[in-house]
Simulated scan of single mutants.
Amino acid sequence: MDLFTESANMLKEQEVQYAHMLSYHQMCRWNSGLFYHHPALKHTQYYWRVEPKVHFFCDVDYDVFRYMADHNKTYGFTINLYDSPESIATLWPETMRFLAGNGNKHMAENNAMGWLTDNKRRPDKNLKANGYSTCHFWSNFEIADMSFWRGQAYEEYFNHLDRAGGFFYERWGDAPVHSIALGLFEDANKIHWFRDIGYQHIPFFNCPNSPKCRGCVTGRFTDGEAWLNREDCRPNWFKYVGTG
């Protein structure tokens, strides 16, 4: 706890949110590597994460889990953001250590390494995160196949990160951890952008151009300050992977 407090003080100096909130660090660790082992989910394969105070703007007139299964999709997202590099300064170097040790055997042939390492659009982020673009799927919305988290590649990766201590001595979130693992170990074609699901988690939006949607300005990314538009990493996803 002394080391946690000292580390949190350093994070606070860099204006990292929730630095001293132990429960937030525990939540990030839980959502990264533990929830899918809960006994209540033992016989469950797919899940849709839904959080308080989010908004949905479009009629979802099909079974999203059936869609995932029928189209062989592993993970679905709506919003794709840059992260705070100060909160994950050693996450990418630790990932590289994992790959050098034994993780390369898990690398997908059609991976999303370009999206994970891009240094052109936001070079400041890449520099501070030591080679990681900080692009990640915003995991307050995710529809996913837990078979991936329960698989050997992800379990080995999470256990490596857990031993490194960054969930507590930095503020590694489940969103970058999930995203890096998916970008490295899963075929990028199995990651799906749910472009047709209108969604908001303050202050960001996914606003489709669709007659099924109401109350959302088509194409809006944020209703916050203008600089927040720079935090959208979907253009990088489209550049390196495509729109699906």
Rank of each mutant, 00 (worst) to 15 (best):
49 R>L: 15
124 D>K: 01
103 G>W: 05
219 G>P: 01
3 L>M: 08
142 E>S: 13
20 H>F: 15
195 R>T: 10
129 A>N: 09
17 Q>E: 14
222 T>S: 10
108 A>E: 00
28 C>T: 13
63 D>A: 14
170 E>D: 12
117 T>R: 01
225 E>K: 09
207 C>N: 05
43 H>M: 08
35 F>G: 03
7 S>A: 15
95 T>M: 08
200 Q>K: 15
54 V>W: 02
41 L>Q: 08
113 M>F: 11
220 R>S: 12
223 D>H: 11
209 N>Y: 02
229 N>P: 00
80 N>A: 03
124 D>I: 01
231 E>C: 04
94 E>W: 04
196 D>G: 10
170 E>I: 06
118 D>I: 01
144 A>N: 12
103 G>A: 08
229 N>T: 06
58 C>Y: 11
238 F>V: 06
202 I>Y: 11
10 M>E: 00
26 Q>E: 15
210 S>I: 03
60 V>I: 15
116 L>I: 05
99 L>W: 05
124 D>C: 00
120 K>N: 13
29 R>H: 13
10 M>P: 00
176 P>G: 09
236 N>W: 03
73 K>M: 14
240 Y>V: 09
59 D>F: 02
174 D>H: 14
99 L>D: 06
197 I>S: 06
192 H>N: 09
42 K>A: 15
96 M>R: 13
112 A>G: 08
187 D>W: 07
216 C>K: 07
161 L>V: 10
58 C>E: 08
87 S>M: 14
49 R>G: 08
7 S>H: 09
5 T>H: 04
79 I>M: 13
146 M>G: 09
40 A>I: 07
67 Y>T: 02
94 E>N: 09
218 T>K: 07
223 D>L: 00
215 G>D: 06
46 Y>P: 12
